[in-house]
Simulated scan of single mutants.
Amino acid sequence: MISGLDHIVLVCPEIVSGTAVYSALLGRAPDWQSVSEDGAATAIFRVNNTALELMAPKGDGPVAERLGEIITDDGSGLKSLAFATADIEHAHHRLTRRGLNPHEIMPGESRSDISGKTRTWRRFRCDDAETGGIKTFLIEHVTGALAPVDAPGGAVVGLDHIVINTPNPDRAAALYGARLGLDLALDRTAPEWKTRFLFFRTGGLTFEVINRLGEDHDARASDSIFGLTWEVDDLAAAHERLLDAGFNVSEMRKGRKPGSHIFTVRDGTLNVPTLFISHDPK
């Protein structure tokens, strides 16, 4: 039903400056830029296993108004997930039966200001009350789907994992595993880190759902999209590139996973906690 994470939406106040930040961070230009009639400006960065879509208000319109309210209330940051499916009707039927109360399937269309090409899709949104409060969509591309292109040296090639914070790990396990059908690869409680980890796999990336132990949680409270870990082939080249671009980055260090090395981007990412990672060849 779900073939992967199609894209993540990052809402920011202004599209030109936001695009400049993420072009420098990812080391690659956007693959798609557009402005819709309802007041949304977008820039999409396609990597090998997903995409990051920046969205900002532009001009007047209902979407511009809604984006402005989101930014006023919560600031910039990661706001929604869109999972890929090859059969939107089947997915809608299955998620209806699984109690996610999906909204109506709606068509969409966008024309790129870069290439002049048009792409079309169909999508629906699940009920926020059933997805832990995270805006969650399923999307089927009809025409013009973006394909990954080779990355320049030191640039991001893919998304290694996305981190979701949850006050209710059992609810999250049911959502991502039983209801959305992602592969639960690990459910581990690590007292040394005071955290319960649930790892789900889909489309070549990992959903790392975390619950902080020893903290008071309201089990009815919403989950949140916390941060992103971007994968590069050459971590040292990426580290040098970001230093040259003026980012505040940590020293390179070993990651938790054997054979991995990481560094942290401390700020300047539009409120998105960000790591870079590389893996030793097997």
Rank of each mutant, 00 (worst) to 15 (best):
A20T: 12
A20V: 02
V21T: 14
A24L: 13
A24Y: 05
L25R: 01
G27V: 01
R28L: 06
A29P: 05
P30I: 08
P30V: 09
P30D: 06
D31N: 11
D31E: 05
Q33V: 13
Q33C: 14
S34W: 00
V35P: 06
E37F: 12
D38Y: 05
G39K: 01
A40L: 08
A40M: 01
A41E: 05
T42L: 13
I44V: 15
R46A: 07
V47D: 02
N49T: 04
A51R: 10
E53P: 09
E53I: 12
M55Q: 10
M55T: 14
M55Y: 09
P57Q: 02
G59W: 05
G59P: 01
D60Y: 04
D60V: 10
G61Y: 08
G61P: 01
P62N: 10
P62W: 05
V63N: 05
V63R: 12
A64F: 02
E65V: 14
E65M: 14
E65N: 09
E65S: 13
L67M: 07
G68I: 11
G68C: 06
I70Q: 11
T72H: 08
T72E: 08
T72R: 15
D73W: 09
G75P: 02
G77P: 00
L78I: 15
K79N: 12
S80P: 05
S80F: 09
S80T: 11
A82K: 10
A82L: 07
F83W: 11
F83P: 03
A86K: 10
D87L: 03
I88V: 10
H90T: 15
H90P: 03
A91D: 01
A91N: 04
A91G: 04
H93C: 09
H93Y: 12
R94K: 12
R94M: 12
L95T: 03
T96H: 04
T96C: 01
R97T: 15
R98I: 11
R98F: 15
R98G: 11
G99L: 11
